[in-house]
Design a binder for these strands. Structure first.
Lengths: 341, 341
DNA sequence: ACATCCTACCCAAACGATTGCCCCAAACGT
DNA sequence: ACGTTTGGGGCAATCGTTTGGGTAGGATGT
């Protein structure tokens, strides 16, 4: 824990106490084993190390960053941390960052372009080494700007153009859902497709739509509607989808929360989710399994996505060429998806 | 947006370009109106300002921090960001921090004392000006250590000893629940009390228990059981509570997620939440209103708690004396709390 | 005409760590 | 015996800001 209370211990504290020069102490403490051997005698190395942790020495990161032009900081932008999906991804990022000795700044942008700009500027002002965006918009304008300014970054959760990203294979996820619903006999499915600018929703929808088309059952446009990624969003969207002479026999919501909203909307119309209408979500958030009506959903490796995203950024910062990763989703069948009535 | 791409623009860039000394530029850019007037002529001030934002100058925070020994950084520790309650509180913190020109580091500790120690150390190593703990443990040992080291901090969500904190008035919240259940005629209520080290659960429980005692209906010890603050935790705890000859007619779970778990456990026993057994949660998370069985709960001002927590820390850093704040909870009655059958 | 006071700046020393270069002494080679 | 290497460290500049002191030249006061 270090015995110091007021005076911060610096390299000089140690150097003076040992009659050495700060540069020597710096080399001893900083360099890897191979280096420190030629920096000082084994005996000196030992004395320096011992005193350093006796005093609880911790290098001043501001001084280091100033000198090295490397902050060991990364900025993370997400739509909302109170969305458990992004929160979990961020947990992965933070975990991996800590392992690498990096720290992260995270900020919400609410998917608002202006906030994206101002928050990015703030974060860059803090001299981060790189950034991770969890709120990429399909139109890619903002990210093009950032790339143009030479800031290294990677994307998580959503893809955009060919910026490096770590995502779930959302398209495949959509296909898995289609396979499942086809198998259950559903010929008429509606999609709560999420925000139109999010690749997650776009790709999940595309996967399902393509698979249905391949099965000879093209999904008409009026069966697809956009929505927010939350409960009220899913509720409203589903209400719209049900406002038709013949309601669909299955609803695919591209997000678990939207799916919960969908269940609510169904109930409101006197339809029983899981019996009259199959409902499938996406992400397998912890709640899905524990709902009164356990939710069929697609598990996406959120924590892993965050971890890999950070490691990809690190490789990028080291100058390596990186390639986008697409993680494998997995269908989890539960009670909410019933066979076609 | 700044026209620079590679060479960072510093005070010197501006000074050289204007034939001034960096110190002059620094004063012009840094000081408040009253100061900058005596730092340079109105004309010079104007030229400096114009060039600064033409070049998109952003002060290097590492240099500033090194010099001033103030980092404008605050560290935040929470049990888990993927818990929506803490995530929301953190959003409030981050929001308020941004308004004050501060940045935050946030880390999960999982309520694990060792993680609390190592993460705190990391954060302090980053030279934060102060900290906010959302994971205080009732036993206060760790926080006493931190206080002993002279790190300024405040608590949010949970209280501990007399460290300054911003919390919901959890005790009152518990009483509100008791009032409600008493009014409904419930004479036999069980409590899913959360983690034993969290003041939230402790106080909410105490509020309910005290009120019931005052009503002449003391709650026996076997009606109270601890649990994790999540769905499986609430499920398991409720299962234990139901494993008795005469099940209670109402269950108070000190957290919405635990309440959802409780509803599941009831169903498993063939009991209908909201009909056979009243269920009340706490926090009024966005889900509560949207559940298949809308949940009676107590609204706690989570975002506001975060915002106030940060502002309290700022006051503390400015040397003001601060006093703990207890925010008002509000009972929200929904379908899950039925009158006693 | 002299001291005095502003005005509008400049100087230089920090803050703490990193790093290319230099240097001294002992050891070594031939 | 003398030049060369090597082991063990010291020197000093540098990163970008802040801030407690100057100081030169003009205006002001008497």
């Amino acid at each position: 824990m270090g015995t110091q209370q007021s005076r911060p211990v610096t390299l000089r504290t140690i150097a003076d106490q040992l009659g050495l020069h700060v540069s020597t102490v710096s080399r001893v403490l900083h360099a890897k084993p191979d280096e420190s051997l030629r920096a000082a005698s084994a005996d000196t190395v030992e004395r320096v190390r011992r005193l350093a942790d006796e005093l609880g020495y911790q290098p001043n990161p501001h001084a280091t960053s100033l000198r090295t032009r490397r902050s060991n900081l990364v900025g993370v932008l997400v739509p909302r941390l109170s969305d458990i999906v992004l929160a979990t991804i961020y947990e992965g990022i933070e975990e991996a960052a800590a392992e690498q000795g990096l720290s992260t700044f995270v900020a919400n942008t609410g998917d608002n372009p202006e906030a994206q700009r101002t928050r990015t500027k703030m974060v860059i002002g803090r001299r981060v080494d790189g950034m991770i965006f969890g709120d990429a918009h399909a139109d890619g304008r903002f990210l093009a700007e950032v790339a143009g300014r030479g800031i290294p970054f990677v994307l998580v959760s959503r893809t955009c153009a060919d910026h490096p990203s770590v995502t779930c294979d959302d398209y495949l996820g959509g296909r898995l859902v289609a396979d499942h619903l086809l198998e259950l006999g559903h010929r008429d499915v509606a999609v709560v497709a999420g925000e139109p600018y999010a690749s997650t929703g776009i790709d999940r929808t595309a996967g399902l739509v393509d698979r249905y088309r391949e099965a000879g059952l093209p999904i008409p446009a009026h069966r697809i509607t956009h929505s927010r990624f939350d409960v009220p969003g899913g509720h409203a969207a589903t209400a719209r989808l049900l406002d038709t002479p013949e309601p669909p026999t299955a609803v695919f919501a591209v997000n678990d929360f939207a799916a919960i909203g969908a269940i609510g909307a169904l109930r409101e119309q006197g339809l029983r989710a899981g019996a009259d209408v199959a409902v499938v979500g996406f992400n397998d958030t912890p709640l899905a399994a524990e709902l009164p009506l356990p939710l069929t959903t697609v598990r996406s490796p959120m924590l892993e996505m965050g971890r890999r995203g950070l490691r990809m950024l690190v490789r990028l910062l080291e100058g390596e060429a990186v390639e986008s990763e697409r993680l494998r989703p997995e269908l989890v069948v539960r009670a909410s998806s019933a066979p076609r009535p």
